[in-house]
Simulated assay, not measured.
Amino acid sequence: MALLSRLARAYAPHEHRPLDGYVVAMGAFGAMAGALAAAVKLSGRPVPERPAMTDVALLSIATHKLSRLVAKEAVTSPLRAPFTRYTEPAGAAELHEEVRDEGSSIRHGIGELVTCPFCLAVWVATGLTGGLVLAPRLTRLVATGLTATAASDFLQLAYSIAKRKAEG
């Protein structure tokens, strides 16, 4: 890790970049993806040549919702608390949190991951895609619930906008 610390200082001399934390996160992602691939291979389940577009759409919306749920929702803040500090509310039912700078670069890297819905989306999509092969019925059921929640979120926001416009 000393090599990564030197590399990080040379890479971004005026800003802390937790490269060793990123390496740990990439390793964990690789392990998760490898475990999913091994589980699929051991299960003997066929991998579809081309996923159905309905599954792609379902998992896309479910990935969006689960990524935002983990990264931004107040109810999941205990999962992020070891890596972040609460800053302020950030829109409808979401929080803005700052990544903790004290502690290790690994903690900082994890903090960046768990507060970024874009970053988490890769993890969530990989898990849901693996689930689609290993347990398709259950995965579709869970993804349907997440997709319905995402649609409801958009409808709630549209309702609020329409209500404000109607009230003048």
Rank of each mutant, 00 (worst) to 15 (best):
55 D>T: 01
70 V>R: 00
108 H>K: 12
104 S>E: 00
80 R>N: 14
45 R>W: 06
107 R>I: 02
151 A>G: 03
152 S>T: 06
136 P>K: 02
38 A>D: 13
20 D>S: 13
108 H>N: 11
51 P>Y: 07
116 C>G: 14
29 F>E: 10
49 E>S: 01
21 G>E: 08
106 I>W: 04
95 L>I: 07
90 A>T: 03
127 G>V: 10
87 T>M: 09
150 A>M: 04
19 L>Y: 07
20 D>F: 06
111 G>T: 04
37 A>R: 11
22 Y>V: 12
83 F>P: 13
126 T>V: 15
94 E>W: 05
34 G>R: 01
124 V>Y: 05
44 G>V: 09
122 V>N: 04
98 E>D: 14
128 L>E: 12
24 V>N: 00
19 L>D: 07
88 E>W: 02
134 L>N: 07
134 L>F: 12
141 L>F: 15
50 R>I: 14
43 S>W: 00
72 K>M: 12
100 R>L: 04
113 L>Q: 01
73 E>N: 15
128 L>H: 08
65 K>M: 14
101 D>N: 13
127 G>R: 07
49 E>H: 01
143 A>E: 10
21 G>V: 02
60 S>W: 01
94 E>T: 02
129 T>L: 14
87 T>C: 08
138 L>Y: 10
51 P>L: 09
40 V>T: 03
31 A>T: 04
99 V>W: 05
149 T>A: 05
147 T>N: 08
43 S>C: 00
138 L>Q: 13
83 F>I: 09
86 Y>L: 05
21 G>A: 03
72 K>S: 10
33 A>E: 08
45 R>D: 10
44 G>A: 06
144 T>S: 09
110 I>Y: 08
119 C>Y: 14
55 D>N: 00
63 T>Q: 02
